[in-house]
């Protein structure tokens, strides 16, 4: 995904991370908007629901999305 794009969450590739992500509101079927990269390219800021969240690239990669 590129900054400004949005997509729907279809699942998670890592179990350990998915629990934390679910608590923060990353739900299968929810729309996620990629806002911008941190200055050094990692982490990234995304919007889920009405909440802005910072994720490392490795964490963002564990979220499977479909357009």
């Amino acid at each position: 995904m590129k900054p400004g794009e949005s997509a729907f969450i279809s699942g998670f590739s890592e179990n350990a991370l998915s629990e934390k992500l679910l608590d923060m509101g990353f739900l299968p079927g929810a729309a996620v908007l990629f806002n911008f990269y941190a200055p050094l390219g990692d982490p990234v800021a995304v919007t889920i629901g009405s909440c802005d969240v910072s994720l490392r690239l490795s964490e963002a990669d564990s979220i499977l999305v479909s357009h």
């Binding site: 991370l17 934390k20 923060m24 800021a45 802005d52 910072s54 490392r56 490795s58 964490e59």
Partner: peptide, 11 residues
């Protein structure tokens, strides 16, 4: 152990 950083960016 895997380190992670999932954090809210408050308004």
């Amino acid at each position: 152990e895997k380190s992670f950083l999932i954090m809210e960016l408050p308004v």
